[in-house]
């Protein structure tokens, strides 16, 4: 049977330090200039529904960082031996295995959070970030930069998740991580929690505004779409 292999990238012989400038850039770019959610438009899917409170958002972010980092690492290690034609299936199997690990760990040690996240842990599999980074980066790069790229993108995703969750929990229920932040006297004077923040559309508004602020700040992102 004819087996097609991915075209091997030109191997650079020069040995570079573990945290060379290029590697740092790989790690840092996804945090702002190349953020997976607001710039690459990947992985909005499973993200927003878990942002009503900060705690599930943090756990979800950690899960995604774990999955992106290690799936990038594994696929990058295997990149010369995966036939191009079946690579999607191979990638899905690797991702699904890692997600199963995350899901089982959550069920065993944090059952209440696992219940709250419900199907969204499983949906990390179809989170476009993971797949997108495998296709765009891990298939053509060495394991260590791929690992860093995975961590960078996971963190870039996590930042958005936590920012949205902080806004929604603070204005929606007056708490942060479950601790009361808005003091009682404010309620006595007539302050009311914003019920809209608890509803799904609020997440979309916050991301929309985040994109607006980010692009006004960083003009070169305009019209990247």
């Amino acid at each position: 049977m004819a087996v097609e292999t991915a075209p091997a990238p030109v191997v650079e012989k020069k040995k570079e330090p573990l945290f060379s400038k290029k590697n740092i850039r790989t790690l840092r770019d996804p945090l702002d200039d190349n953020n997976p959610i607001t710039v690459q438009v990947l992985g909005i899917c499973s993200a927003l529904a878990v942002t009503v409170q900060v705690k599930p958002a943090l756990i979800m972010a950690l899960g995604v960082i774990f999955v992106t980092a290690f799936s990038n690492l594994i696929i990058s290690l295997l990149r010369h031996s995966i036939p191009t034609r079946v690579r999607i299936i191979v990638q899905l199997i690797v991702i699904a295995t890692l997600v199963t690990i995350v899901d089982q760990v959550l069920k065993a040690y944090m059952f209440d959070v696992s219940k709250k996240l419900s199907v969204f842990v499983g949906l990390i599999i179809t989170n476009c970030i993971v797949m997108g980074r495998l296709e765009a980066f891990a298939l053509a790069n060495k394991p260590w930069p791929s690992f860093l790229d995975g961590i960078g993108n996971g963190v870039g995703y996590g930042i958005i998740l936590v920012v949205v969750a902080v806004f929604r929990e603070l204005f929606g229920s007056g708490t942060l991580l479950g601790y009361q932040v808005v003091p009682q006297w404010a309620y006595d004077m007539g302050y009311v929690n914003n019920g809209l923040m608890m509803l799904p559309p609020a997440a979309l508004f916050i991301i929309g505004i985040y994109i607006w602020v980010q692009r006004s700040w960083n003009k070169k992102l305009i019209n990247v779409s």
Partner: peptide
């Protein structure tokens, strides 16, 4: 507004439709 074009406005519209 230019920074809101494309993705930004699509998000906000989706939010309004969700409401």
């Amino acid at each position: 507004p230019a920074p809101l074009q494309g993705l930004g406005i699509a998000m906000i519209i989706t939010g309004l439709m969700g409401m």
